[in-house]
Write a protein that binds this DNA or RNA. Structure first.
Length: 1044
RNA sequence: GGGUGAUUAGCUCAGUUGGUAGAGCGCUUCCUUUACACGGAAGAUGUCGGGAGUUCGAGCCUCUCAUCACCCA
């Protein structure tokens, strides 16, 4: 059966992939012939993900390494899987519910919603896996992991250990004091109504405005405001009864706790410590806030005075913390102005009392206060802004300035009109957006769980510093240090449903509620308990919490605390309820019941579980061991952890890499891998980010459809220079598709010449120079490829294979073999046939990690094979063992001569088909033997008719200087003499430049003194050759001139 | 504002202890010679972003400027 003209990738790829899978070719340990393991953990794509070029690139590199190591006989595992992508998945399912006209999430409730998510996952969650298969990814799919596996509500088929792992790690870290709960300013996504980490926030520069408002000083106080220029000359001096504040977010003024100025700012020094009025809200309850000093304000920015709204700005938060300024939260979870709490008049009065020092405050008290005046309550934050601006301006408290513009008056004449208008600067501001929701992120003061990263960052930092973990390229290390050395606490709670629910239960802190024993008799009497109930303080009070893997475990912890309470509470049974309100209600009810029947066995102590879930990256941080069965001590965990290499995008160095390192160290005390290979974002051919809005997105599957997976993979490998920018262009992919066809045609060549293809040939013992040479070249490229892959220089490996296969095997070896294959020397023919098959097999083996499909297909053409190519043995022969210096020299001489003759022919317009005679002068013995051995090849490929020894070249002869003799092509009458002279003179000019440099260096005594011996020798040799060349060209010109 | 990196042929990029620049694609010319036109042969194209310094010698090291990109504020 004749081979097809080209490789039909679309038809073959699926068939080949299925064959690999059917033979379990990718299973952990498949093709193992040694004990060393090689483990790569796939960076888990989102379960909602679809394959993009970034995945394609990333997974191609992983596959190259894995296939290479597997062929080398390592016990290889490429562990696949996906993460559950909390926000993205929840969003997707919510959208689907809406599209299907089903009840909303809140309407259907948590359990029903999660059921829907799992349903969605079963239907669509495997998309990206199928797509990775199309690329040829050789993961052990039987081990596919999922970060939500084993969750309590997981359906059949989703059993697994990940939930256990996550919960266990949380509890351990909680018990070790590495996780804590706190009220902190976090990035709040008002769309998803959840906290998100600062890494999930995109800061984008947008057109914004800066408004300038007057905060009147209390009690009509005034001061002299003096503005000076750079030279200290007064440019403005006026009496003011206000301080001017610039803000981009006027709606947050309602929560201001102070106005801050820089301590060195002379303009405001006289009013520091005084009070000023927030110029918004009902006139009767205008709040007064202090003017304080802090290092934060920039004297040159705005007015130099900054309003401090601790609960709504990260910088202000720090100032407020330093200054003990209350942080009033103004918004609800949706980003609307709060509508809860007491009437504004009462809240404002309390706030004023706090400022006046008449009332104390704590976090909880401040958090409960709502300082939004009634007229703004319930408004969206952006509507509130508009209203606040309008109200302040109406009241005349906006800073005004004059604007002059040209208008046409009633008569149509242009006139200048000057108006005094509010001073509003239009300016670019950096605004935070949720990377999923795309809405403006609101800093919000909320109770969240945090990992105390400061305490676990050390080992990760050390691992890189002491070289246990290498980050490539090296620049990644600097970035890594910089980030880890300035690490912020990691907020791990998310107000979502899709995720691992935090294993913490809360109970009312009865001790702090006055469940005290007035009589000191170790028991509470009815009066004491009823007194407590009547105070109705249960809901406002404090809580205590405990973490445990299960409710049963946590029950004991609560019981232990309860035991310290007076009888009969000490005997109350711990029960789980839905939430705090239910808990308070349940407790009150059972106490009331007890009051009637005095039956202590009916007393219960209700606790409720934290409703929030953990950040997806918390589970992803456990990926290196969670995928291997941890916390079970599985054989896989034992064997494949720690892994070897992590290949991932530079953009998730912090998101994920650092967290895996911290978590592996915190949990297992080991680094999860020894090498991190970071790559950049794949961009379009112009170097721009791919984005849907720009329409420059390259879909890797479309590329695969058009050019085949191998072409895409080879392109990816070829681009993968360490630290390089990745620009993907279709022309390139096309070029490498052509390379596949070239390889295909080399086999078609072998078929055409009817070369036997028994399969699995061993390296032939050869006597032909040609065969010795190509075997040596093969050994060289094998070494180059291994070195390149060892150093993660995928581009070098790809380029070396391209140059070898095309530039050596196809361009020269196959051409050279033709006369032998067609010739009568049976022994030479047999040897060459065997060598040719062997060399082609080596091409397949060495190319297989990069181009798995076409190579497997060609491999399968042999009569028989012991194994599929995916499991073929990777060669270990060396250049030292196989390169024959003499054969090398001779073949290079032949190639050189052929190229020179061709070049001269082409440049002197000898018709391509014409055969020309060749002359040679003073050919030495080596040259003669090289000619004798290879003249058939030379004559065929350079179209030479005959060789004649001459003592002098005739006039009009083009000369070819070679090592061991000078060749000449007599061209009298065939060439354009002036053109040829011009050509030679041009090369003479180039030579002269080179000669000048070489002579200059050698003449310089300092060069001869300080340069290494071999460099000097090389330079001398180079000079000698160039001078030789120059002489020959000059001689050639002279001969041509005689003609003219 | 801080950090990191980039700037080399028309385009996309290599260039590994500093020794005088390479590849692919594209382009020009020629060739349908029985593996391959997704091919073959030949060819042209670079003050290696600007400037300064170290050195016998700098694309590579140092400083500086410019432009661009990305990350973090």
């Amino acid at each position: 059966m004749a081979m097809d003209k080209t490789f039909d990738a679309s038809a073959a790829e699926k068939r080949i992939y299925d064959a690999w899978e059917a033979s379990d070719a990718f299973k952990a340990g498949a093709n193992k012939s040694r004990d060393e393991t090689f483990t790569i953990m796939i960076p888990p794509p989102n379960v909602t993900g679809v394959l993009h070029v970034g995945h394609a690139f990333n997974n191609t590199l992983q596959d190259i390494l894995v296939r290479w190591k597997r062929m080398q006989g390592y016990d290889t595992l490429w562990q696949p899987g996906q993460d559950h992508a909390g926000i993205a998945t929840q969003l997707m399912v919510e959208k689907k519910l809406a599209a299907d006209g089903l009840p909303k999430r809140a309407e259907m409730g948590r359990d029903a919603f999660l059921e829907k998510v799992w349903e969605w996952k079963a239907e669509s969650g495997g998309t990206i896996i199928e797509q990775l298969k199309r690329l040829g990814a050789s993961c052990d799919w039987s081990r596919n992991a999922f970060t939500m596996s084993g969750a309590p509500n997981a359906p059949e088929g989703e059993e697994g250990n990940f939930h256990d792992a996550v919960i266990k790690v949380f509890v351990k870290m909680y018990e070790d004091g590495l996780i804590y709960r706190g009220k902190r300013l976090v990035n709040w996504d008002p769309h998803f109504e959840t906290a998100i980490s600062d890494l999930e926030v995109e800061n984008i520069e947008v057109d914004g405005h800066m408004w300038h408002f007057k905060y009147p000083l209390a009690n009509g106080a005034t001061y002299t405001y003096i503005e000076k220029d750079e030279d200290g000359v007064t440019i403005l001096e006026e009496e003011r009864d206000y301080i001017s504040i610039a803000t981009t977010r006027p709606e947050t003024m309602l929560g201001d706790g102070a106005v801050a100025v820089h301590p060195s700012d002379e303009r405001y020094a006289s009013i520091v410590g005084k009070l000023c009025e927030i110029p918004v809200g009902p006139k009767a309850q205008r709040r007064l806030i202090p003017i304080i000093t802090d290092e934060y304000p920039d004297k040159d920015f705005g007015s130099g005075a900054v309003k401090i709204t601790g609960a709504h700005d990260f910088n202000d938060y720090q100032v407020a913390k330093r200054g003990g300024i209350p942080m009033y939260a103004l918004m609800d979870t949706k980003g609307a102005m709060r509508a809860d709490g007491r009437p504004y008049a009462e809240e404002a009065a309390t706030a004023q009392a706090i400022v006046n020092g008449e009332e104390t405050f704590d976090e909880a008290k401040i958090a409960a206060m709502n300082l939004v005046p009634e007229e703004y309550r319930g408004l969206d934050r952006f509507d509130a802004r508009t209203r606040v601006i309008a109200d302040i301006t109406d009241e005349g408290l906006a800073v005004m300035h004059d604007v002059t513009r040209v208008e046409k008056n009633d008569d149509g004449e242009k006139v200048e009109v000057t108006e005094t208008v509010p001073y509003v600067e239009a300016k670019k501001i950096m605004q935070p957006f949720g990377d999923r929701s795309k809405v403006v992120i609101e800093p919000a003061l909320t109770d969240q769980w945090f990992v105390d990263t400061d305490k676990i960052v050390g080992p990760a930092l050390d691992a890189v510093k002491n070289g246990d973990v290498t980050i490539m390229p090296e620049s990644g290390e600097k970035v890594f240090y910089h980030w880890l050395e300035n690490i912020e606490p990691w907020c791990i709670s998310r107000q979502l449903w899709w995720g691992h629910q935090i294993p913490v239960w809360y109970g009312l802190d009865l001790a702090s509620h006055g469940f005290t024993d007035d009589e000191g008799d170790g028991a509470l009497d009815i009066v004491e308990m009823m007194g407590l109930l009547s105070r109705q303080t249960l809901l406002d009070g404090n809580e205590q919490h405990h973490a445990a893997s299960t409710f049963d475990d946590v029950k004991d912890q609560f019981s232990n605390v309860m035991a310290k309470l007076p009888i009969p509470l000490s005997n109350a049974r711990v029960v789980e309820v839905a939430d705090k309100a239910t808990a308070a209600h349940t407790l009150a009810e059972c106490l009331a019941q007890y009051a009637m029947d005095q039956d202590p066995t009916k007393l219960v102590y209700p606790v409720w579980r934290d409703a929030d879930v953990l950040d997806t990256w918390f589970s992803s941080g456990l990926w290196p061991f969670g995928t291997l069965g941890w916390p079970e001590q599985t054989p896989e965990l034992d064997k494949y952890f720690p892994g070897d290499v992590l290949i991932t995008g530079q953009d998730i160095l912090f998101f994920w890499v650092a967290r895996m390192m911290m978590m592996s160290q915190a949990v297992e005390g080991e680094n999860p891998f020894h090498t991190v290979y970071l790559h950049q974002l794949v961009r379009d051919e112009k170097g721009e980010k791919m984005s849907k809005t720009k329409g420059n997105v390259v879909d890797p599957l479309v590329v695969v459809d058009e050019f085949g997976a191998d072409a895409l993979r080879f392109t990816m490998a070829q681009m993968a220079a360490l630290g390089g920018v990745l620009k993907l262009s279709e022309d390139r992919i096309k070029g490498y598709r052509n390379f596949g066809t070239k390889l295909w045609n080399a086999f078609s060549f072998a078929e055409h010449y009817e070369i036997p293809n028994p399969g699995d040939t061993s390296m032939p013992v050869v006597s032909q120079t040609l065969n010795k040479w190509i075997i040596g070249e093969t050994a060289k490229v094998r070494e180059t490829v291994d070195h390149a892959l060892t150093d993660y220089r995928f581009n070098d490996a790809a380029n070396a294979l391209y140059a070898f296969t095309w530039g050596k095997v196809c361009d020269w070896y196959l051409e050279f073999s033709k006369p032998i294959l067609q010739g009568d020397d049976a022994a030479a023919k047999d040897e060459t046939q065997k060598t040719l098959r062997w060399v082609l097999d080596q091409c397949l083996i060495l190319l297989h990690p990069i181009k798995p499909f076409i190579t497997e297909e060609l491999w399968g053409l042999a009569d028989s094979r012991a194994k599929m190519l995916v499991h073929a043995d990777w060669p270990t022969y060396t250049a030292a063992g196989l390169v024959d210096a003499e054969a090398d020299r001779e073949m290079n001489w032949v190639i050189n001569l052929i190229e020179s003759v061709r070049s001269n022919r082409a440049q002197t317009h000898v018709p391509a088909g014409a055969k020309v005679p060749l002359l040679v002068q003073s050919l030495d013995a080596k040259g003669q033997s090289a000619w004798d051995n290879n003249h058939v090849l030379i004559q065929r490929l350079a179209r030479i008719e005959s060789l004649e020894n001459v003592t002098d070249f005739p006039k009009g002869c083009v000369t070819i200087p070679m090592d061991g003799g000078t060749f000449g092509i007599p061209l009298e009458g065939l060439i354009d003499v002036p053109e040829e002279i011009a050509r030679l003179e041009k090369s003479l000019g180039k030579l002269a430049k080179e000669l000048g440099g070489l002579r200059g260096r050698l003449k310089n005594p300092k060069f001869v003194e300080s340069a290494p011996e071999e460099v000097i020798a090389e330079t001398r040799e180079n000079l000698r050759l160039r001078e030789d060349e120059e002489a020959q060209i000059k001689a050639a010109i002279a001969r041509l001139q005689e003609l003219g």
